[in-house]
Design a protein around this nucleic acid. Sequence first.
DNA 1: GAGCACTGC
Length: 770
Amino acid sequence: MAGDSDRKRLGSEKDEVSAKRVKKEEDIANNPYLAHMQQDNTMENGSRYSDRLPKGSPFADFERRATTAKQAAKAEEGDNNPFTGEPHSPQYFNILKSRRDLPVHKQRAEFLEMYHKSQILVFVGETGSGKTTQIPQYVLYDELPQLNNKLVACTQPRRVAAMSVAQRVADELDVTLGEEVGYSIRFEDKTGPKTVLKYMTDGMLLREAMHDHMMSRYSCIILDEAHERTLATDILMALLKQLAQRRSDLKIIVMSATLDAQKFQKYFYEAPLLAVPGRTHPVEIYYTPEAEKDYVEAAIRTVLQIHASEPEGDILLFLTGEEEIEDTCRKISLEVDDMIREADCGPMMVYPLYGTLPPHQQQKIFDPAPKPLKKDGKPGRKCIISTNIAETSLTIDGIVYVVDPGFSKQKIYNPRIRVESLLVSAISKASAQQRAGRAGRTKPGKCFRLYTEKAFKEELIEQTYPEILRSNLANTVLELKKLGVEDLVHFDLMDPPAPETMMRALEELNYLACLDDEGELTQLGSMASEFPLDPALAVMLISSPEFYCSNEILSITSLLSVPNIFVRPANRRREADEMKNQFRHPEGDHLTMLNVYHAFKGAEGRGEDVKQWCHQHYLSHRHLKSADNVRTQLRRIMETHEVELVGTDYNDKNYYANIRRALVAGFFMQVAKREGNGKVYRTMKDNNQAVMLHPSTVLQTDYEWVLYNEFVLTTKQYIRTVTGIKPEWLLDIAPVYYDISTWDGQTDVKAALKGVQEKMRRRAAMKATR
DNA sequence: GAGCACTGC
C-alpha cells in the first residue's frame, strides 16, 4: 500500500520537475533578454549537458554559436567521431577529402561569422555548390543541438531528396542513418532519440508546426530550395518570419538557387546574404531567328539535326505532357531508323519521361547510350523526352544537348468559378535557365531554345508564379487557422494571393462548417485540419459515422487521394473497359471504385498474387497499394479523434444509399443538374458551368442530379468521378448551401429544388396524418 | 468518347 502511494508521489514529483524544466526552457526560449542563458551546461540533477558527449569529444571545448572553421576542421580530422566516440572509418577520410573540394567549403569561416551575427541568413548557392549537404553540417558543428536537447532541421520540397540527402550526410558524418542523422517524410519517420540533424519535407514541418506553434524542438531551421516557392515553403517562411520575433534563440537559414535572392533578403528584414558559386560547365545558348509555329515539329527537327551533325552526347527535350511525349518518341524513333538506313547515322535510343510512368520505366533513362552499330561506326546516343520532372526532380548525367521549346503545363486557379486546371503556358526565364543548366552537368553543353532571343528577353516572365498564387486556398486557409494565424489579411506572405481567392476559400470553409460566420475555426474545422486531405474530403470522412458507413467512406476517401487506379493501355482499351465493367456499380464511379477496392482486398485475403490479379484486371497495383497505405494513416487519425469506424450490413437495402448520402455531406458544393433531357449538366450556384459527364464514367442511368469529385478543363468542360444522387438529400444534408431564399440566378435549378421541397413537405405531412 | 505538369501532408 505504502509503496503504491510512494510511487505515485514520486511519479508526480518527477513530472513536476520535468514540467518545471520544460517551462524554464520555454521561458528562456521566449525571452530575448535571457538568450545568454542558452549555454546552460548543468542539468537539473547536477550532471552536465556535456556528459552527453562521448568521452574525449572535441565538442566539449566548443562554445556553442561561437566556434570557428578551424576548430571544426580539427574536430573533423580527429581519429574518433565527435558524435559517437567511435574511430572514424577509412571511407570517412576519403569523403572528407572530396567535401573539402566543394565550392562552399572555402566559405565556411565566412558563413560561421555571419551565422553568429544574425538570426536569419539568406544563402545562395547554385547547383553543385554543395549547400544542401554541407551547410547543415557546418551548422551542426556550431549549434551542438545535442547539448540543448534540440534539433537542426533542413527542409526539402520532395521526399526522395529528403531521403537521399540524409543518407549522404549520414555517410559523410560516418554515422548510421536514423541515429544522429535522420529524415522524416509522410509514412516514414527515420529519426531516433539521438538525432541531431533531420532532413524533412517542407509539408512535414508544417504538419508538426500545427501542434507545436513555437517549433520548440528546433534550434535552427534551414529551408532549402526556397526558390521553388512551394505552398509549404511559402507558409513556412511567413511563419518563421513571425516566430523569429518570439523566439530570439531560433536561427533561420533560407537557401535558394536563383539570383532573385534579394527578394528573400528584403522579405527577411534585410537579412545578410552569402553567395557561393556553383560548379557547372558552360552551356552555349542558341535561339531560333524567327518564332516557330509548331513547337513539336520544330523540336523533332532540332533533335534529328543534333543527332546528324553534333558530336557525341545525350539529348534532353522538354515537352508538356504524356500524350505529346509518347507521340514524339514514336516519330523520332521512326525518323532515326530512316537516317540510319540512308545516312549511316549512329543509333539513338529514345526514352519518354514523366511522373505517371512506372518507376522501372523511369529507371531506363539511366541506361547507357547504345554502342555504335559497327566497329568504328558513329557513336550512339540517347534522347530523353521529358516533362518538367527533369527540370528539378530528376537529374540525368551525361546530357550535353538540351532542346527547350519554352512551354510547360502549369496549374492555374480561377476563383470566379472555383476551378483549378492545367494549361500549357510559356515558361519563365528562371525555368529556361534551369533547363539550359541541365546540359552542363558533366561537360560543356549546348541549349537550343525554340524561340527568339527577343521573345526570351521581352516575353518571358522572370520567375514562375509561386504556387500560392495559382491554387485553391481552402486547404491552406484551414491549415493557417490551425497554425494559430488569427489575422489572415495581415499574415505576411512573400506574395499575398488575390483577395478574391482568399474570400473564396473562407466562403468554402464556412459552407463546410469548418469556419463559423466570424471566420473562427470550429471543432469540425480543427479536426478536419488533422487529416492530410482537402477540406471537403475531411468533412465527408468525419461526418460519415452519421450515415453508418465510415468504413466505406474511409476506403473511398483513400481511393480519391491516389492517382487513377484504372489502367487503360492505348492498344488494349477495349479489354480494359470490359474489365472495368466487371466492377461497375450503376449508381456511379465512387461505388465502382469501392467495388474494386473490396475485390482487391478479397484477392489479397485469399492469398492470391495481387500484382498478377491487378494486371489481369487492368488495375494499378501501385496505386491500390498506396490507397491502402493512405487508408491506414487516415484510420489512425480517425482513432485518435474518436471518429467511429462503422458500417451498414452489406445486405441492408440502405447500404449504398447511406454511402451516397455521406458523399453529399462533403461534396454538396460539387453537384450538377441535367439541363432538359440532353447530355449537358449545369453546376450549382455561382459556379454555374455547363459541363459533360467525363467519358470514363460508369454512370448510364439517367440521373438528373449528380455529384462529382473533379472538374476537368480540356477540350471541353468535364466532371469526372461522378455519382447519382437525390435532390432531397441536398436539402436535407446541406440546408444552408441549398437555402433557396438566398440564392441568386439559376431560376430553373431553384424551381426544381422548390418542387422537391414541396414534395418533401407533402410526404412529411402524409406521414404525420397516418 | 477522353487523358495525366509536378509535388506534398
